[in-house]
């Protein structure tokens, strides 16, 4: 008999049973959530929903301006957060050594990651919307979300860079490369799949954020898609929030769940791409 099994140990078996039940609760929650969204969205989620603008009439309501808003937002956030996040990670992993400043910056990043997203919204409101006079524009929203996900981009890039074996660096130095040449030609290409995966996962966090955008005063419903970085905008989660708050049942359940379904599809696609990159390039 394997001493590690529970055979003949009633207490152990009950314990294991409870553990399994508890684990099932988490798994079941996801299943129920997805099922209830699918059920509510049936009959509401179609091409017209994707390409229409919001409307007073639930049958005509669509998410197009918010979808485009979210896509622009995500592109801008990627453009801002990628160089900043990767640059910070390279500094911390390749230049900072075990210095005091590295410890301070890392502690600071872990604190920033724990700051509630609504507080970033306040920062965006005071800094970008008011002080820098950007108004409630796409760019103000993108910069706010950039600061929000920056800690996650940095930490995941650091992990990717740390995973590059030192032997590669040594070989590069051995043939006379400078530090930057080594980083640019060896470390970054080697770490890139990991960095991309982490960045895409962070972006999928940004695309689902609502509270910071409400705080900067972004519109919950827009009738036309944004046409530039200084234009007003809405985003999918904001539009969903607006629909959930409507008193009519058709909006609250039907139209809102169609919006949620689209948001979940976008998130799932992003996560799949991230995992695909990870698996394709993982050694």
């Amino acid at each position: 008999m394997d001493v590690r099994s529970n055979k003949g140990d009633l207490k152990g078996q009950i314990f294991l049973f409870l553990l399994v039940i508890a684990t099932c609760v988490g798994v079941a929650s996801l299943a129920i959530l997805v099922y209830s969204v699918l059920e509510d969205a049936t009959g509401w989620f179609d091409l017209a929903f994707i390409f229409n603008s919001p409307s007073r009439f639930p049958e005509e309501a669509g998410i197009y301006p918010a979808l485009i808003g979210s896509i622009y937002l995500m592109l801008l956030v990627a453009v801002f957060s990628f160089p900043l996040g990767v640059g910070t990670a390279i500094y911390l992993e390749e230049y900072a050594g075990q210095s005091r400043i590295k410890n301070i910056i890392e502690l600071n990043i872990s604190n920033l990651a724990a700051v509630p997203s609504i507080v970033y919204g306040l920062l965006g409101l005071a800094l970008f919307v008011r002080a820098l006079n950007m108004g409630r524009s796409l760019i103000a929203g993108a910069l706010t979300l950039t600061l929000l996900i920056l800690p996650i981009v940095i930490v995941s890039s650091q992990e990717a860079i740390r995973a590059v074996p030192d032997s590669l660096r040594d070989a590069s130095y051995g043939i006379g490369s400078t530090k930057w040449q080594t980083i640019r030609k060896i470390v970054i290409p080697e770490a890139l799949p990991g960095i991309m995966t982490g960045t895409i996962l962070s972006l999928s966090r940004a695309i689902g954020e609502t509270a910071p955008l409400i705080m900067i005063g972004a519109a919950t419903s827009m009738y036309s898609a944004p046409d530039g970085i200084f234009s007003l905008f809405s985003a999918m989660p904001l539009q969903i929030y607006a629909w959930v708050g409507q008193p009519q049942y058709a909006f609250q359940e039907g139209v809102a769940s169609a919006g949620i379904l689209l948001l979940l599809i976008v998130l799932l696609t992003m996560n799949s791409v991230a995992i695909l990159i990870r698996n394709r390039f993982q050694r």
């Binding site: 209830s36 695309i207 609502t210 959930v244 769940s257 949620i260």
Partner: peptide, 24 residues
Amino acid sequence: VVKPVLEVLAGIPTVVYGFFALTF
């Protein structure tokens, strides 16, 4: 199976959780 499921659960936007609470 379970770990990815929990990761997905962690990645669901909070507005969706609000909808789930209210309608389910």
